[in-house]
């Protein structure tokens, strides 16, 4: 029997070949794939568990920031890293750092992915690859925080606020808020003379300084 040669396959009046031909090229993304992205993210602190994700979407369904920040979607962030789609990740750089660290995603993940830490690792990746023109507010905050811990052993919340506004060039706002600072001092909630210091701390200070320097960068 001769084999029928036809550029099209019609079953029950539906032409299939053309549909499939159109369909397949879009399904397979090969161009942007770059597994360096996945490898790099997994070596960053908190990124280790990324590969266990099975894309169920539980994390995004309950994510705190999802309703507040357009396009904030931890499941998708993971997918994009695995696809190696650097352009898309970069396009979401102003969303990703806004994770509130609420831990709902990690709490509920059925695969024991530490999703919140993975999102943190993706943020660190963006920072490392120099995507942010200036440090994100979260980065500035973390740096001030670790400076205080390294130098004094403890945090003074009110002082953190002051330094943050100064470092992010918002001194005007600080002045506006000085009213609140006064109120706090009167109520005795703000330490006046930097009392939040640990006595036996020199050794720890040296160790922390060394660790931070070795981890690279100021923070």
């Amino acid at each position: 029997m001769a084999v029928a040669q036809s550029p099209t396959v019609v079953v029950d009046g539906v032409e299939l070949t053309g549909e499939w031909m159109n369909f397949l090229p879009f399904r397979v993304e090969t161009d942007p794939f770059d597994d360096a992205l996945l490898k790099e993210t997994m070596t960053l602190p908190g990124g280790e568990s990324l590969a266990k994700c099975w894309q169920c979407g539980t994390c995004s369904a309950g994510c705190t920031m999802n309703p507040y920040v357009d396009g904030f979607n931890p499941r998708q962030f993971i997918d994009l890293v695995r696809l190696g789609d650097w352009e898309e990740i970069r396009a979401k750089s102003d969303q990703i750092w806004r994770c509130a660290s609420c831990q709902k995603c990690t709490h509920r993940c059925p695969k024991e992915v530490n999703t919140a830490d993975v999102v943190g690792a993706i943020t660190a990746l963006l920072e490392r690859r120099g995507v942010y023109a200036k440090p994100t507010n979260a980065e500035v905050f973390a740096e001030i925080f670790m400076d205080q811990v390294t130098n004094h052993g403890r945090i003074e919340e009110a002082k953190m606020g002051q330094e943050f506004y100064l470092k992010t060039g918002r001194a005007g706002e600080l002045a506006k808020r000085a009213g609140m600072g006064m109120q706090m001092m009167l109520k005795g909630q703000m330490k006046l003379f930097g009392g939040a210091k640990v006595k036996h701390w020199k050794g720890m200070q040296e160790v922390l300084k060394r660790r931070r320097a070795a981890a690279g960068g100021a923070h």
């Binding site: 602190p45 908190g46 660290s101 830490d117 943190g120 660190a124 905050f141 973390a142 925080f145 670790m146 205080q148 811990v149 052993g153 403890r154 945090i155 640990v198 006595k199 036996h200 701390w201 720890m204 160790v207 922390l208 660790r211 931070r212 070795a214 981890a215 923070h219």
Partner: peptide, 25 residues
């Protein structure tokens, strides 16, 4: 006596081992 900061969520950003060191102290 003489307790110090636990490192909060910022320490692990700076250096993984420090985020265990601070609570351990």
């Amino acid at each position: 006596d003489d307790y110090s900061c636990c490192g909060a969520i910022e320490a692990k950003r700076a250096d993984e081992l420090s985020s265990y060191l601070l609570p351990a102290r």
